[in-house]
């Protein structure tokens, strides 16, 4: 082989490489996008879950908003207090610690307890099912069970048991994505230590609820009588007032609609929820003690 060929080839390739490299180097110098180093640092602090719970497009977007636009620093739910403190430190602001909130599905009407009114045939998605003849559940407030919440959950914390969604509190990262996904607005963010909930969202009158579900709130006000201000009424539906602890846990057994439940007791609860605090009498159930803390 002619030595010239080799020289020409290597020269040409080397030349192309050199030209491109120079062009890239120049481009990097002149076209560089200046990013605020504080934004980068903030992005490092954030957990990178990109869950959208803060209302921004992702962690980087929120980082930019906090640093440049003065957005509230306490919007990152998955990060919890740890991240909040770091953000506060970086921004020179006061951090006000808040208890972690987890998602709870306010419906317990599974396929055995809440009958369906028709056989839905179509896209397996709650929003889609709800738009066809008002949803296939007889109860027009209940969980449809087509998994829209589970599909948006970034941490896989939502499971379906017998056609009704259940959130595992220890897996929940508090992003609220499921709250936005549920077409029936059944999911609420609740302080993690609170374990007694009214798992019904039906605003219908008692007789209608009874026909539609075995575990529905019939508006009897029993919980208000037994546990006082820990519950409040909205029309025919009892709501849990999470600011006030439930003193009398008997209500869980006594609720005629069987829709007041204590969660975390049967499943693996998060450690904060079960550990009795030393200051409280140890004879009391774990739930009540943590209720008392806030």
């Amino acid at each position: 082989m002619d030595i010239n060929n080799i020289l020409i080839t290597s020269g040409a390739i080397g030349g192309v490489g050199l030209t491109c490299g120079t062009a890239l180097a120049l481009a990097a110098k002149f076209l560089a996008v200046k990013e605020d180093p504080r934004v980068e640092a903030m992005d490092e602090i954030l957990p990178g879950a990109n869950c959208g719970g803060c209302g921004f497009a992702g962690c980087a977007d929120y980082a930019k908003a906090v640093v440049l636009d003065g957005a509230a620093i306490n919007l990152c739910a998955p990060g919890g207090n740890e991240v909040l403190e770091l953000i506060a430190e970086a921004m020179g602001q006061e951090a006000s610690a808040e208890e972690k909130r987890v998602a709870v599905v306010m419906c317990a009407g599974d396929s055995e307890k809440a009958p369906r009114k028709h056989l839905y045939n179509g896209v397996a998605d709650c929003t889609a099912a709800a738009a066809v003849a008002g949803g296939d559940k007889l109860c027009k407030y209940g969980c449809l069970g087509y998994g829209s919440c589970a599909r948006v959950c970034p941490s896989g914390a939502i499971e379906f048991k017998n056609g009704v969604a259940i959130v595992h509190p220890d897996l929940c990262i508090s992003c609220s994505a499921c709250v936005r996904a549920c077409p029936r607005n059944l999911i609420k963010m609740v302080p993690v230590s609170k374990t007694i909930h009214v798992v019904c969202s039906s605003k219908d009158k008692g007789p209608i609820v009874k026909k539609a579900c075995q575990v529905g709130c019939i508006g009897c006000r029993m919980c208000l009588k037994l546990a006082g201000d820990a519950f409040e009424m909205e029309g025919f539906l009892a709501l849990r007032n999470y600011d006030i602890p439930v003193e009398n846990e008997l209500i869980v057994e006594k609720c005629p609609g069987k829709c007041i439940v204590k969660c975390g007791a049967s499943e693996a609860p998060s450690p904060e929820a079960t550990e009795p605090t030393p200051s409280e009498p140890s004879t009391e159930p774990a739930e009540a003690t943590t209720e008392g803390q806030t």
Partner: peptide, 12 residues
């Protein structure tokens, strides 16, 4: 395929 349902959902 439930095409009309896709369209309806998309439109809304």
């Amino acid at each position: 395929r439930p095409l009309v349902q896709h369209m309806k959902q998309g439109k809304s």
